[in-house]
Amino acid sequence: MKKILFTILVVSASFALKAQELAQDQNPNYKVSMDKYTAAQATLQTTMNTTVQNTYTAYDWRIAKSKRKAENRSYRRERALSNQYYYNNNYGYRNNYNQKYYRHRCR
């Protein structure tokens, strides 16, 4: 009987202590959240005091024009390189003029 009373006393004392730890109106389940964020603290704070760059690409007339020009240039070059008649048909003779293109293709 004494033992049971002692256990009840200890348990109720521990509950009372725990209740004392809580601030006024504090959620008693605060420890669940505290443990969760304490564990993830290092990863969550990596962006602190920095600018997180999450930019998007907006239409710009100059950029669009230069991109079009680059695409056209690349297309013309590809077409020229793939044109076997003009660039590799040397009728058995060595063609020094187009040699750099030929070498480039073989790389």
């Binding site: 600018t51 930019t55 998007y56």
Partner: peptide
């Protein structure tokens, strides 16, 4: 304490 600033614009901007 200063937290992070998110740049959601179309340019690279440093808020620092």
């Amino acid at each position: 304490i200063v937290g992070f600033v998110t740049n959601k614009s179309h340019e690279h901007i440093e808020a620092e």
